[in-house]
């Protein structure tokens, strides 16, 4: 034991081997360069910044995914309100009369599809809302046509023809739908939608007060439109 103690004491007495001043200067220069480079990299990708970037990326992906998923959502879906927001954004980006008309007709077509789906699911409340919204879109489309009547009659005529064709198509679909349902409330909603669609057409003609049905002035006994070809 004493031998080992002596050996330990001898080890403690060994002079530490120190680096030369040159080695230390070289060492510091190399370490400093690495520290500077590391600080540059760290400033570019600071952990907090990385976290924020990751969170933003995740949020963007989440929103993009939700937006994509909402595009085909139906009124009974949780994502449906987001669909409305995105539609409003689209509307804000439609500037020319042609684009505005296309926008309203597209939304009208979408509302009709939604109404059919809701009727199939026996969600008559939501189907009624979709049909009402369909008519709102047709009304707005009619106003777009009417606005061009004075300034550009040729363009107005072109737009009106597109509107008439769209309303005729919708009316055919509504008529088919009307024949498929037996629920009186659903039938009433569809009938009302058809009447309002016809009224929208009157509005586009600059005659908003015209009675949509049974006025006896048109060539057809039906209040519903026939597209001009």
């Amino acid at each position: 034991m004493e031998r080992l103690e002596r050996l330990a004491e001898r080890l403690r007495a060994v002079d530490p081997v120190m680096p030369s001043p040159g080695a230390k200067i070289r060492g510091w220069n190399l370490v400093l360069a690495a520290v500077e480079q590391s600080a540059t990299v760290r400033s570019r990708t600071h952990p907090v910044r990385r976290l924020v970037l990751a969170a933003v990326a995740a949020a963007v992906l989440l929103v993009a995914g939700a937006v994509a998923a909402s595009a085909d959502s139906l009124p009974d879906s949780a994502l449906y309100p987001l669909k409305g927001v995105m539609e409003n954004v689209r509307g804000a980006l439609a500037f020319s009369p042609s684009d505005k008309l296309a926008y309203h007709l597209d939304l009208a077509r979408t509302r009709l599809t939604e109404a059919e789906a809701m009727i199939a699911r026996h969600r008559l409340d939501l189907a009624g809302q979709a049909l009402s919204s369909l008519d709102d879109q047709l009304d707005d489309a009619a106003l777009v046509v009417q606005a061009e009547m004075q300034s550009d009659p040729a363009l107005a005529a072109s737009l009106e023809n597109r509107l008439v064709q769209a309303i005729a198509t919708h009316d055919q679909q509504l008529a088919g739908l009307e024949g498929q349902v037996t629920n009186p409330a659903a039938i009433a909603a569809i009938t009302q939608a058809r009447d309002r669609a016809a009224q929208a057409l009157q509005t586009s003609n600059g005659n908003p007060s015209a009675s949509p049905a049974g006025n006896g002035k048109g060539p057809s006994s039906s209040p519903h439109p026939t597209p001009k070809h």
């Binding site: 081997v17 680096p19 080695a23 070289r26 060492g27 190399l30 370490v31 690495a34 520290v35 480079q37 590391s38």
Partner: peptide, 15 residues
């Protein structure tokens, strides 16, 4: 020893 000391200090201060 010099190489190892520099390497150690570089790793210590950059990581």
């Amino acid at each position: 020893a010099e190489d190892l000391a520099i390497d150690t200090m570089t790793r210590s201060l950059t990581r």
